[in-house]
């Protein structure tokens, strides 16, 4: 038996006189309790973390699935858009509705005038105000050409 397990009625010769001694059992229980609490906390934390991870993973899967679905829908719409945009389709609509579309011709421009300063776009195009490019070689299709 060591000095901690040995029962004796005599006071501890090394103890300070006048001070109350905590029984060693209480200390042991306290330490064990603390250890249990720490272990339980760690265990709980781990379980909680796993649970949280699972939840997040499920959430991630759900969002991934949704993204995938949206992508699929976008792909389908792109395919439809490209089919509608094809010249075959446009040409058939031109013929169907007898649209008076013709290819551009330089002679259709009757006169040209270069605006100086600010130019207001018509209201149906947003009515924004922009400065006309008066430099040489400016885009001929800008507001400066009528």
């Amino acid at each position: 038996m060591n000095q901690f397990t040995k029962k004796t009625n005599s006071p501890d010769p090394g103890a300070e006189p006048g001070r109350t001694q905590t029984p060693w059992v209480a200390g042991l229980i306290f330490k064990m309790a603390m250890m249990m609490v720490i272990i339980a906390a760690a265990f709980w934390a781990r379980v909680h973390l796993n649970d949280k991870t699972e939840q997040l993973a499920r959430e991630k899967n759900r969002i991934t699935r949704e993204i995938q679905e949206k992508r699929t829908e976008i792909q389908t719409l792109i395919a439809q858009r490209e089919t509608l945009r094809s010249w075959d389709n446009i040409n058939s609509k031109i013929k169907q509705y007898n649209l008076a579309l013709r290819s551009v011709n330089p002679s259709q421009v009757r006169y040209m005038k270069r605006f100086e300063g600010q130019v207001s776009a018509p209201s149906q195009y947003g009515g924004d105000t922009r400065v006309a490019d008066t430099s040489a070689g400016a885009d001929r299709t800008s507001g400066g050409v009528q």
């Binding site: 792909q75 395919a79 490209e82 089919t83 945009r85 094809s86 010249w87 075959d88």
Partner: peptide, 11 residues
Amino acid sequence: SYRRNYPKNTM
């Protein structure tokens, strides 16, 4: 799945 699509047909 997906299949190959040729939106411009004969072009």
